[in-house]
């Protein structure tokens, strides 16, 4: 799009622009510093991470990441002497701390669980939400308003109030600590948000577009796929980001309902703290990796968000 927008905007003056820019930079610094600090900590050695005054300049190390992905045991110097020379750089790194690698940690597995459950429930919520939103927007549904209110009302109860019943129910039907159980749970929570958000977006799309397609020989479903879906891209992208953020960060249910096979990263990361002292670099590494998927997902969908906004400016 060119520089024309829906409403004309007077260009702000130079000083105002400078001031506004400065405010934005300061705000960005304030919010970014903790994240940057976590990111940096992931590349420090344990000693550097707790040194006082804090080190800003240090020799980077991958020890945090190695510790995050492995379990290690401390050995006597005598035993260490009997070992063959280390085969890999991480063996060497661990041995320099008088330890040997006992095996992989659970982080990789937990991270994969988060990916499966987070993206699985996001996909399902957006899929169901899109269909429901379309139906609510386009068809004459008896008691549509009441149904919509009911859907919203499922979000009114604080989750913790239903945690125990869900825990008992899940145990009875065998959904505790399963991927499916967690996907169903997060989808249930997210789908109401998805329906409401997406319905707003469908309402904005004039019916004439679909009607033109119907007249031109498309079925309603084909018209939905070819005409409505592309124009809902913005809404779908925004909704998917909201759903993923919720499912990705959810802690309370994950802690309650998962312990082994289906445990996600949020309840796992704090357990690193418990294992033999505060391994700050490993925590920094874990948090950094944990932040990445949502960040990447948002950046990938950003194009759709922007494109949708420019369409909106043209349409009316």
């Amino acid at each position: 799009m060119s520089s024309t927008t829906a409403h004309s905007v007077v260009e702000p003056g130079r000083y105002l622009r400078f001031f506004a820019g400065a405010v934005v930079v300061v705000y960005a610094l304030v919010t970014m510093i903790p994240l940057v600090w976590i990111f940096i900590t992931g590349f420090k050695t344990p000693q550097d991470s707790i040194s006082y005054p804090p080190k800003v300049i240090f020799e980077p190390s991958l020890e945090g990441y190695v510790n995050l992905f492995t379990t290690r045991t401390r050995q006597t110097p005598d035993y260490m002497a009997t070992l063959p020379p280390p085969e890999t750089w991480y063996d060497e790194l661990v041995r320099s701390r008088q330890m040997v690698i006992a095996g992989p940690s659970k982080f990789g597995e937990r991270f994969m669980n988060s990916i499966i459950i987070g993206f699985g429930s996001t996909f399902l919520s957006v899929f169901l939400g899109t269909l429901a939103a379309y139906a609510f927007s386009r068809f004459r549904i008896p008691l549509a308003d009441d149904l919509l209110f009911f859907i919203l009302s499922t979000r009114m109860m604080p989750p913790i109030a239903v945690a125990i019943p869900i825990f008992l129910m899940y145990r009875t039907v065998g959904l505790s600590d399963t991927h499916l159980g967690m996907i169903i749970l997060y989808t249930t929570v997210n789908v109401s948000l998805a329906v409401w958000l997406l319905k707003g977006f469908v309402d904005e799309i004039p019916r004439e577009y679909e009607e033109a397609a119907l007249i031109d020989g498309y079925t309603r479903f084909q018209a939905f796929v070819k005409v409505v879906l592309p124009q809902m891209a913005t809404g779908i992208a925004a909704t998917a980001i909201f759903c993923l953020i919720f499912a990705w960060n959810e802690y309370a249910f994950a802690l309650l309902l998962t312990s082994g096979t289906a445990q996600t990263a949020p309840p796992f990361i704090p357990t690193i703290i418990g294992e033999g002292g505060l391994d700050w670099p490993a925590i920094g590494a874990g948090v950094t990796l944990f932040l990445l998927p949502v960040l990447v997902f948002t950046i990938l969908l950003r194009k759709h968000l922007l494109r949708g906004i420019t369409f909106g400016a043209v349409r009316k």
Binding site: E208, A212, L214, T219, V314
Partner: peptide, 17 residues
Amino acid sequence: PASRDVAFVFQQYSLYP
């Protein structure tokens, strides 16, 4: 509508954006 072999030029919102 599809079976009637008619074409419709709408008052508004005529093109797929």
